[in-house]
Design a protein around this nucleic acid. Structure first.
Length: 443
DNA sequence: TCTGGGGTCCTAGGACCC
DNA sequence: TCTGGGGTCCTAGGACCC
């Protein structure tokens, strides 16, 4: 916890619905529900008009239709949301370089790194008001709610207190007075399961939570959650604003309107998902070692299976093959309502351009427009790195121009140029000494 | 007309290594 | 021969967030 209120949390109000109302004037002042519109959809965002009918996020869309039949039900335009979000995040970065987006519509801003005359409550309040005006301008009329406090915990809770279009600044020293009377569920991380466990030992409010010892909480909730909650109950929170958070996994999943049983259909659907995941991996210049699948059966029970490769991959065929094998191990004869594929254990490319330096301007150029062919790539890589001729090409796929993975006798190289776009990925079996130049830097 | 899709973090048990 | 730990990696599942 800091001695001044320097952590700001912004949360755009009913974000997806507000963007729809902005772009379609006929929807303004009317109930709007954005989310899954199929038979098994749920509500992502309800406009405030829809909320008066009892519609809220995570509610099945069918239920929302019952409660508010006259609402506009929309499936969402994520490009519009992303564009609007970007404008807001850019605005936040004008205030401070330390901005941590939590989602499209939410972020923390560290005001210690902002250009402010001082960090008094008066000063940060003025900044909060100005920010809300600017948000309104850059988004074309959306409102956001702002909380400012000495920690992430309290800033986030504060932004929720006066929604929509709110501004709450919690003065240093007032944190515990604010939290004590509140329900434990205001603390992020206390969901239904934790709340139920706490309720069983007679804890409903933060004040009651404070009476449990750390040992009791650890016994009740486990090491990490127990110690974390013990601190948060006392408004003790030193978490910093982290602008760069690296992606840990990439996944695709789909819930089907009706349960699928046909194994060939399931395999085909899974393969399409594997291709999508691969495309997203490549777009982010990532590859991954662990392939996971997720299967939700007709009774909503959920299974997952995963397998870890010896080398990171971004090859659709390889990821697809692993996913298929994993699916084959499960009994899906009762029907599948959801299927998903994910990749984790992500590795960055080693950003070493094979063709950039000592070959100079006369470096090898692709001799036809659709990219390097295997032989030319092998020859070029061999020349450049002094690899011995006769290395085996053990694997081949699509890719772009850097060395990206190595270890245990295999080097994987990606080829691409600005002209040719995605080219090929090649893995070379080599001896250990030849691997040295391609090892990733030590963490 | 029950229960989305994209993530993160944690736990617990087993394997394996030192 | 018996009896260990600790650390790390992997897998499956669960809680939680927006």
């Amino acid at each position: 916890m800091r001695s001044e209120s320097t952590i700001l949390h912004v949360d755009l109000d009913a974000f997806f619905a507000a963007v729809e109302q902005r772009d379609k004037p006929s929807l303004r002042g009317k109930p709007v529900v954005v989310g899954g519109v199929g038979g098994r959809g749920v509500v992502a965002t309800a406009s405030y008009e829809a909320r008066t009918f009892g519609v809220h996020s995570a509610m099945p869309t069918a239920e929302a239709r019952r409660r508010c039949p006259n609402a506009a039900f929309l499936s969402g335009r994520f490009h519009a949301y992303r564009d609007t979000s970007r404008a807001v995040m850019a605005l936040l970065r004008e205030i401070s370089p330390l901005v941590e987006p939590l989602s499209l519509d939410e972020a923390f801003v560290d005001l210690e790194a902002a250009d402010l005359p001082d960090l008094s409550v008066t000063s940060v309040s003025a900044l909060g008001r100005e920010l809300k005006e600017r948000v309104h301008e850059v988004t074309g009329g959306l409102t956001g709610s702002v909380g400012i406090a000495t920690s992430k915990l309290v800033a986030k809770i504060a932004s929720d207190l006066d929604k929509p279009d709110g501004l709450v600044v919690v003065a240093p020293g007032m944190e515990q007075d604010l939290l004590r009377p509140m329900q434990v569920t205001v603390i992020p991380g206390v969901g239904p399961a934790t709340a139920e466990r706490l309720r069983r030992v007679g804890v409903h409010t933060v004040e009651e939570l404070e009476r449990l010892t750390q040992d009791e909480l650890v016994r009740l909730l486990g090491r990490a959650h127990g110690t974390g909650l013990y601190a948060l109950a006392r408004a003790e929170d030193d978490r910093s604003v982290e602008p760069e958070r690296e992606t840990k996994s990439i996944s695709v999943e789909d819930t089907y309107d009706t349960d699928h049983v046909d194994p060939r259909l399931l395999t085909a659907l899974l393969e399409r998902q594997a291709v999508k995941v691969t495309e997203r991996l490549r777009k982010s210049h990532l590859s991954g070692r662990t392939v996971s699948i997720k299967v939700r059966l007709h009774d909503f029970s959920t299974l997952s299976r995963s397998a870890t490769l010896s080398e990171p991959s971004d090859d659709a065929r390889q990821i697809s093959r692993v996913a298929r094998t994993l699916l084959g191990e499960l009994d899906t004869s009762g029907g599948v309502r959801l299927l998903g594929v994910g990749v984790s254990g992500l590795a960055d490319w080693i950003q070493e351009d094979l063709f950039a330096d000592d070959e100079g301007e006369d470096g090898p150029e692709p001799d036809h427009a659709d990219g390097w062919d295997t032989e030319a790539a092998v020859a070029a890589a061999s020349r450049h790195r002094g690899w011995a001729p006769g290395m085996d090409v053990v694997h081949e796929a699509h890719g772009r121009g850097w060395v990206w993975g190595s270890g245990r006798g295999v080097v994987t190289v990606r080829f691409e140029t600005a002209e040719t776009g995605p080219g090929r990925v090649l893995s070379f079996a080599v001896d250990d000494s030849a691997l040295a130049p391609f090892r990733p830097p030590e963490e």
